[in-house]
Computed example of a mutant assay.
Amino acid sequence: MATPQPALAHPALADYRIADTSNLLTPALLIYPEIVRANIAATIRVLGGDANRWRPHVKTSKLGCVMRELTAQGVVNVKCATTLELITAAEAGATDLLVAYPMMGANAQRVIALAAQMPDNRVSALVENAAQIAAWANSNISLFIDVNGGLDRTGINQDRIAEIIELAHAIEAAGLVFRGLHYYDGHMSKHADLATREVMAHQGYDQLMQLVAGLNSAGLIVEELVTSGTPAFPCAVSYAPFKDAPFVHRVSPGTVVYGDCTTTRQLPESYGYRPAALVLATVVSHPAPHRITCDAGHKAVSADAGVPTCNVIGHHDYAPHKPSEEHLPIDLRATASVPALGEQLYLVPRHVCPTVNNFNHALLVADGKVTGLENVTARGREVPIQPTSD
């Protein structure tokens, strides 16, 4: 028997069911725009009504129409990981765009070229050592220093204050703008208890404040500090020194736009988030007693966060098993009703970001009806060879 699916606080099947699915191919990505709109508003509300404090990572949003909803609610500062996300966000109305991924070689040159095409937008990038600065020479790209707060994925360790000061001076000596610090503390997700997570995150923020003080003492201005993906979002909100800081502080949760099983566990229920991106799947087999299989393997619902990969709305007695590429076996408790072949299930992903990236198209759903079809605009990446001016 697979591990029971993670519990969800809010969803009821009636809130998501489509009245007529007879013409829908599955697996299909479903987006609920009214819930997206409410989740964006909820995030701004948690930030005291100040949309300027949010720099969401649009690797989650992916759809141009969803990014337009962000900008419509005043969220015009974003961060992204790919040039396609950069293009999509700018076209959606974002005006301050941070490429929050180390860009090298042709990737950096592509960011420079795109920034030159959008002179009214502010485009920034990350560096963690002096050698990376040269890639941005003679461009209008501003630079954040990527600070490693303990995730050990990218960045310069935050206790190396002297080296960070030296790096900031090198940015300015190269004629570029030192924008501030980028600090992703995604490793806070290992603390399931929010109180413990808050204590650990605040220790890191205390070190960040010391780092900012050191930079200021060296004559360097930290314009912006970017912290906190989804797991640490509540911790940044509760950290008092950020509220009256001499810099702009922005948080960067992106998953909250759609929500998923993991977000539900990590964030306070009082924030009011609801899942807004589901996968519609069809039961295709009854391979064994108390087991069914549906067509939402890991090419549909991402398995990167582990098993179970999803929650089956309305069926807490269903336990999704390890998927293969196209198949998702689901174990049923002995007392569970067995769905007929062809019956459809509504799945909330465990990790929504790569799940959205699995699809070319999304169905928009409202009031039990499919109301639109949208391209997953920023899915994947740009064509890897760009035309030259020669």
Results as ranks from 00 to 15, higher is better:
T371I: 15
V222E: 00
L8E: 04
G214A: 02
I385P: 00
T26S: 02
F242I: 08
I31R: 05
E91S: 09
M67H: 01
A14T: 06
G297V: 01
A195M: 12
H315D: 01
V212Q: 11
A162P: 03
P11Y: 02
Q207P: 00
I141T: 05
V248M: 10
S285A: 15
Q207A: 08
V66E: 00
G372T: 06
N216I: 03
D15E: 11
S142I: 05
I165W: 11
E85T: 08
V370N: 05
G204V: 07
A130M: 10
T371G: 07
Y318E: 00
G259I: 11
T88P: 01
L24C: 01
G254E: 01
N375W: 03
V78W: 01
I164T: 12
Q386S: 13
L63K: 08
P33Y: 09
N216A: 13
V257R: 05
S189F: 08
L176P: 03
I385H: 12
V99Y: 10
G93Y: 02
V370P: 07
D244M: 08
L70M: 11
M188A: 12
G49T: 05
R265F: 08
H286E: 00
I385F: 14
S337G: 14
S302Q: 00
G259P: 03
N39G: 00
R265M: 12
E163D: 15
P329H: 11
A100C: 10
D317Y: 07
L167H: 05
V127S: 03
P119T: 09
A319V: 01
G314H: 08
A334D: 14
D260P: 10
G204P: 11
V58Y: 02
L97E: 09
F359K: 09
R197T: 02
V66Y: 07
V348H: 07
E166H: 12
A125L: 10
C261R: 12
F242S: 08
Y273M: 09
A378F: 09
H169K: 15
P4F: 04
C310I: 05
E343K: 10
D185E: 14
L84A: 06
A41D: 07
Y239D: 03
Y205I: 07
D193A: 06
L63A: 12
G342E: 06
H182W: 06
T371K: 08
A195I: 13
L29K: 05
A378H: 01
L347I: 05
V348C: 13
S217R: 15
D331N: 09
T309V: 15
A72Q: 14
A116N: 15
T95K: 13
R291W: 02
A106T: 13
K190H: 14
K322A: 14
H351E: 12
C65I: 13
A288C: 00
M209H: 13
I165G: 04
R110V: 01
